[in-house]
Design a binder for these strands. Structure first.
Lengths: 234, 234
DNA sequence: CGAACAATTGATCCTCATCAAACCTTGTGG
DNA sequence: CCACAAGGTTTGATGAGGATCAATTGTTCG
C-alpha cells in the first residue's frame, strides 16, 4: 500500500509542511498494519519510532507494578502519538499501544524526525501545541480522578472519548459510537468492570445510551453532561 | 533589588543562553515578592507572564467546580512555571499559584519570550524537555491516583515532594524537610486532611518521620520507599 | 492572653472494590 | 447449521477503605 503525501496534511503537525518534507518523512517510514488487540509497542521499549495512526483506533495504556492497567489516551486516525521519542534522544516509551480495532499506523523514524526538527520551526511549534494541549487534558483528568466520584468520572470519560474517537452513527444524529469494552472504560475512568457495567445499565434504563458487547452507543450526550456537571439524577 | 543575569543560568531553560538574551529577558521582567499564602495568579487569568521562582516555595493548584483543590505541582527556586503561556498566544492559566512560604518570582513577559523563541532554537528544545518531563510525571501520578490506595499514594507523594522541594536539614543527613500542612499533603495525594493526619501519626510512631504544624521532617526516606513499593508494614 | 488556625481523634456511614457464579454473544470447527 | 469454546457481561452479596462530621486539643503570633 502506498501513502499519499497530501494525506499527511490532515495530521495537525504536518498541516503546513512542504511536500518535500512529507515525501522525505514517508521515505523514512513504514506502514504497520495491526489487528484488533495487537500491540504496536510496549512500555519500556526504546522509542525508535513516532506514530501517526492512518486508520482504526489505538489505546495508550500504562501498567502499575502489580499489573493493573490505566488508559492514558485513545487515538484515532490522523493523530500522532508516541511523540516523546521525537524529543528525547534516548527515551523509552512510557506507555503500551494496543489496537482497539484493526488499524494501521505509520511508523516514522524518531531520529530522522528529530533531526528534521533542527531546521523546521513549524515542527517545533506544532509539537509544543500538541504537548500543551495534552498537558491541559492530563491535568484536568488528574483533578477529576482526585476529586470526583466514579459516576461523574465515567460520564466525563465517555464525553471525552466520544469527542476524541467517537464515530457518528448518522450524519444528523448526535448519537456516537465507541468501540470499547466495559474493561476499557474502567481503565479509562479509574474504576472496575463491575461498576462500569452497573452504571451503564442504569444509564441505559434512562435512555442515555445503549451498551452492547464491546461497544457503547451514546444516544443522548446531553444527559451525560448533566451528570458530569452535578445534576443528580433524582 | 537587582537580578544578576548569570544567576538565571541556574534555570534549566537558560543554561546555555547568551548573556545578551538574559539581559534582554531581565529588562522585560519584574521581580514580584510574595508573602506566605499569597497568590501570584489565579486559574483563568490571562497568561500574561511566565515565571521563574527566585526564592521560596510555590504550589500550583487547580480547583474543581465545587471548590475542592488539587495540587498539581510544587516549585522551588530556579524552576520555571506557567510556561504554557509562552506557547499559546491567547491562553489563560490552567492553575492557581500560591506561595507556601515567603517567596519571590521573576515575571517574564509571555509575549516577549514567545517572540524570542522564534529565533532561539535552544529555547524551543529546552521547553520541550521541560514539557516531556512534566508529561511523564503527570502520567505516572495519574496512574497512581487511579490504581494505588491512599497510604501508598501519600508515601509516593512525600518522596516526590522531598526530591523536588525538600530541604536537607544537615549536610550528611538524608533527613529532608517539607513546608507543607496536612491539607497541602491531602491536596497533593488526593486524600483528606484527616487521613493524612492519621497516616503521618502512624509513620511517626514507626520513626519514619516527624510531623509538626505546617511541616514534615522525613527522617528515613527508605521507610517510605518500602511502603510505596508494597512492603506492607506488618 | 486571646484569636486564628492547624492538627487530632473517635464515631459513623457510604461508595465502590472484590469475589463468585451465571449468563450472553460471537466466532469457529465439525 | 449446530455445538462448543472463549471471552465479555451481568448481578448479588459482602466488606474494606476512607470520607465525613463533630468535638477537642495544640500551636503560633499579635
Amino acid at each position: 500500500m502506498q501513502i499519499n503525501p497530501e494525506d499527511l496534511r490532515r495530521v495537525d503537525l504536518f498541516k503546513e509542511a512542504p511536500l518535500e518534507d512529507l515525501n522525505a518523512l514517508i521515505g523514512k517510514s513504514i506502514l504497520r498494519p495491526i489487528e484488533e488487540g495487537g500491540f504496536l509497542f510496549f512500555q519500556g521499549d526504546p522509542a525508535s519510532h513516532v506514530y501517526v495512526l492512518m486508520s482504526g483506533r489505538v489505546k495508550l495504556l500504562q501498567s502499575n507494578p502489580s499489573g493493573q492497567q490505566v488508559n492514558l489516551r485513545t487515538v484515532k486516525e490522523w493523530e500522532m502519538f508516541a511523540a516523546l521519542g521525537a524529543v528525547r534522544p534516548a527515551a523509552t516509551y512510557p506507555v503500551t499501544a494496543q489496537a482497539l480495532e484493526s488499524s494501521s499506523a505509520l511508523a516514522i523514524d524518531s531520529k530522522f524526525l528529530r533531526e528534521m526538527m533542527q531546521t523546521r520551526p513549524y515542527l517545533n511549534f506544532g509539537l509544543m501545541q500538541l504537548m500543551t494541549g495534552y498537558i491541559n487534558e492530563l491535568q484536568a483528568r488528574y483533578r477529576e480522578m482526585a476529586t470526583e466520584r466514579v459516576e461523574r468520572r465515567l460520564a466525563l470519560t465517555l464525553l471525552r472519548l466520544a469527542s476524541q474517537i467517537g464515530k457518528r452513527i448518522h450524519e444528523d444524529d448526535p448519537a456516537v459510537e465507541l468501540p470499547l469494552t466495559r474493561q476499557d472504560l474502567a481503565e479509562a475512568s479509574g474504576s472496575t468492570m463491575f461498576t462500569v457495567s452497573r452504571t451503564l445499565a442504569e444509564w441505559e434504563r434512562q435512555g442515555i445510551l445503549e451498551a452492547s458487547r464491546g461497544r457503547v452507543l451514546i444516544r443522548n450526550p446531553h444527559g451525560l453532561v448533566k451528570i458530569a456537571e452535578g445534576e443528580e439524577s433524582e
